[in-house]
Write a protein that binds this DNA or RNA. Structure first.
Lengths: 120, 120
DNA sequence: TATCATATGATAATAATTACTATTTGTCAA
DNA sequence: TTGACAAATAGTAATTATTATCATATGATA
């Protein structure tokens, strides 16, 4: 059965505290400050676990690294093609009458790609 | 200036012939049959180039590998969370009046995740 | 055909992630 | 509270996808 470890708690808290769609590496760096002996494998393991249980969500792989998201409510993303920064975009209802409704949809992922204000 | 090489041609043809959202590795395997001495780096290089020039499109990284798409017209995707198979989903118009219209959108990526018929 | 910039092939290097394993630690029952 | 044990951790090796490097080859152009 699942156990409650301090590492797990710190990792999940850190994702929330970081806020902005961090990579596993960034979570590791942040967590290391509070818990210097934590292993990178532990961070990866817990993030993967939390993602599969729905405690955090994933945005997908951007510029080679998976991006995690503390916000598990329905929303979409904008990603800058230059700096790879991520911005939340509010969810909007998708039509119900489209052909993909016959599929077994578990998750809808909508990502907008472009150049952010800072980068233009 | 850009040159027309046999390798480049074979690679682009192969993406079209394969049809179904191959990885670079799968393109390499397929291309190798026609051109046994081709280098994997050449395949990666040409796919990246073709993607940035718009000759092919990319679906994103799925299960650790970038998936390429010969279909450059506007459309969306369904990806099976078990077998990682990809299916095209017809494009539908997205609303114009949403907040993200103030952003500099170059590309809209919509991916549905679920379990495909074969896998259920 | 000579020139030269660009592409290729072969392979090394990198980066992200996962696998492995000895050790530690929550949890639960007595 | 303690003992037992399944599950998690730390540390590190291994894997996998992709990119970098560079000597050689080859399209394109004059």
């Amino acid at each position: 059965m699942k156990r409650n470890t301090m590492q797990r708690q710190i990792i999940l808290d850190s994702v929330k505290e970081l806020g902005n769609h961090p990579t596993a590496e960034q979570v590791y760096f942040y967590v290391s400050k509070k818990h210097p002996t934590i292993s990178k494998a532990t961070v990866y393991r817990n993030l993967a676990q939390a993602a599969s249980s729905g405690e955090v969500s994933t945005v997908g792989v951007i510029n080679g690294s998976m991006r995690f998201d503390h916000n598990t409510s329905d929303h979409f993303h904008f990603v800058c093609q230059r700096c790879y920064g991520l911005v939340d975009v509010p969810h909007f209802g998708l039509p119900d009458q489209y052909p993909f409704n016959e599929l077994n949809i578990k998750k809808v992922e909508l990502t907008l790609h472009g150049i952010c204000d800072q980068c233009r």
